[in-house]
Design a protein around this nucleic acid. Sequence first.
DNA 1: CTTTTCCAACCGATCGATCGGTAGCCACCA
DNA 2: TGGTGGCTACCGATCGATCGGTTGGAAAAG
Lengths: 217, 217
Amino acid sequence: MTQTSWDPRRLTAVAVELPEGVTPPGTRGRILRAALRLFAEYGFHGASIRDIAREVGINSATLYAHYPAKEHVLAELIRLGHEELRRRMVEAAGAAGDDPAEQLAALVRAQVLVHTDYPLLALVANHELHALSPESAAPALALREEARQLLLAVLERGATAGAFDVADVPLTGIAIGSLGMRVANWFGPDQPYTREQVADAFVGFALRLVGSPLPRG
Amino acid sequence: MTQTSWDPRRLTAVAVELPEGVTPPGTRGRILRAALRLFAEYGFHGASIRDIAREVGINSATLYAHYPAKEHVLAELIRLGHEELRRRMVEAAGAAGDDPAEQLAALVRAQVLVHTDYPLLALVANHELHALSPESAAPALALREEARQLLLAVLERGATAGAFDVADVPLTGIAIGSLGMRVANWFGPDQPYTREQVADAFVGFALRLVGSPLPRG
DNA sequence: CTTTTCCAACCGATCGATCGGTAGCCACCA
DNA sequence: TGGTGGCTACCGATCGATCGGTTGGAAAAG
């Protein structure tokens, strides 16, 4: 309840986490983690390969035994971030029932939890995308669009069925997406909320935004 | 309704605007505009002083006749962005009546319009803050906190008066602030909304988030 | 009024430092 | 043995900033 805005000095207090099972083991994975922390704090261009190597404890030339170029490290992180988002949202959509409100809640919860669980990955995936070439960025953009379409489809369905009172589906989708995205900028261990509390609250916000009669969480 | 997510390739389609009356005239101002465009597209570290100088049409050494260091150019942009936000929000708060809902609407409208009017400035001010030293960043952070407190005070007042149905004021404040902030990432001339339409819609969203009985805009 | 001085803005050249990446070599392990 | 991961040394390019010099306009001096 004190400082909840973006403050890069907090970065060292946020765990450098990557999704399990999809992160490469050994040095390759350690490079990703080091890059994640440095890219999140200083940006792609502000973090040098020497910085990354030093943090991993290897020589900078060794990076090239694992990744063909600096850009590939970033592209990998961005891919991981977007795949985790898409995976969780597809999973949530599949597990939810037919009720549009329930589907929306499931999607929003999934989105928010990706951002609480992997805040640095979300920050890098969202803020450093511009450093990639169009070809490198395309896969991630496609995944992002897929996640977005999941949300829009539910909003459309809910509005058509009369469960949602929505004047403009795309704009409402943007608003709901914005809520989840910004979580990565402020959520952390020094905040007085657990991840579940944040997800509950944000599901409540989303339901309010669509005018669903469900009460706040 | 097509592409509404962050896409750096769209940057050249967004006008490079700085607030009137506070932007220095002549070369100094042209440097700020050039830096604004380049920092927004490539980030502070991704844009060199040679890039900036080239865009202005001067020699890179000349930049140092106007600004003592590269960081100062960024600091100036970030200061301008935060001052405009604070100015507009203070003005909106002063002009609004006593009704908490009316005050909230005024604040949200002001915030959203800063982001529609100066999207690049908002992007740089929000995303490149990390490139500043703590001393350089402090003034902007203070202004940001001031704007935030304006919003929280209204939420608190509305909740206390029973006009708002809010479970958690700081969290609701974050959510409302998030909505406005992200506008700079997607709003532009290729979107099918005017700035007023966006502001109206977002005021409606904010009122819903606080459970105010006012209908959607 | 004319001349001189001053100063801000500007220049090309250059600085030391750092950048991402390469080449060649070595050690280890299956 | 061959492949992988690691190293030192090095490359050309670029970085932010400095240097010494020039220019033009304004102000001061005579």
